[in-house]
Nucleic acid binder design. Structure first.
Lengths: 129, 129
DNA sequence: CTAAAGGGTGGAGTACGCTCCAAGGTCAAA
DNA sequence: TTTGACCTTGGAGCGTACTCCACCCTTTAG
């Protein structure tokens, strides 16, 4: 498929796709006229890339993941390990969010958000222009 | 406290603190010699800023939160509303992460990560240089 | 044949969140 | 008094992840 089709299928811009290719996230064949020719697998792969991005992975990290997949002697094992790793990252993030949530909820519920010495933002007005 | 003390207390660089001030995240008094003079509350406030940042809030958003705190006629009510809002955002984010986690876990656990037509990365090797 | 739609390249520009530097003022200890 | 630590400002530079643009070629429809 050509870049426009891939863009339509993924919701990405052509420029973004070219950028990903330059970043080593994506490789393409070329047609006789110089046009890029992407395999259909590029669609789920780019969806995966976007997902990983929203999880906070940089493009460089995602590219490294891709390399690991490519180099894995046993493809399935490599992918499983990668997914397990991602799950661990997610769990960490969720735990962090829940801890903060509990912290905030405690202050809200108890109506003591401004109790001296405990407030997150003890005197915000003094700190802001 | 002066900028060096605040930097030491928060683990931030002086440049970062000046940057935050410019960004409207922080206001400081000035000593007679022009040195910035931060109130001790700046320490927990900056910790809060960093926490919010790791949760994915941009500095602009955090600054807006701060402004709302400053402008709230009833300080305590304003803070409580803000915290409640943040909790809602956190809940959304957690839900998204957990959905993704379930999706990944399903593929890992079932050992069918590479089942044709369902694979996240059907043929990564073809897509990478 | 021509015009529009789509593709290619290179390079500039953008937003965010800083870091680093130069040039200079301030202050406390030796 | 001099040294050194600490402070000031302004501006440049950087990495990430793009977007936009100019300029040109290819393909397709009428």
């Amino acid at each position: 498929m050509r870049i426009g089709d891939l863009a339509a299928a993924t919701g990405l811009s052509r420029d973004a796709i070219r950028f990903y290719e330059k970043a080593g996230l994506l490789d393409s064949a070329r047609l006789g006229n110089g046009y890029r020719d992407f395999p259909p697998e590029a669609v789920p792969w780019l969806h995966y890339v976007r997902t990983a991005q929203t999880l906070g992975f940089t493009l460089a990290e995602i590219a490294r993941h891709g390399e690991r997949l490519r180099d894995a002697p046993d493809r399935e094992e490599g992918l499983t390990a990668l997914l397990a790793e991602k799950i661990a990252v997610i769990d960490e993030r969720v735990a962090g969010l829940l801890a903060l949530r509990a912290d905030l909820a405690e202050r809200v519920g108890s109506g003591c958000a401004l109790r001296p010495g405990e407030a997150i933002v003890p005197d915000a007005a003094r700190l802001l222009r």
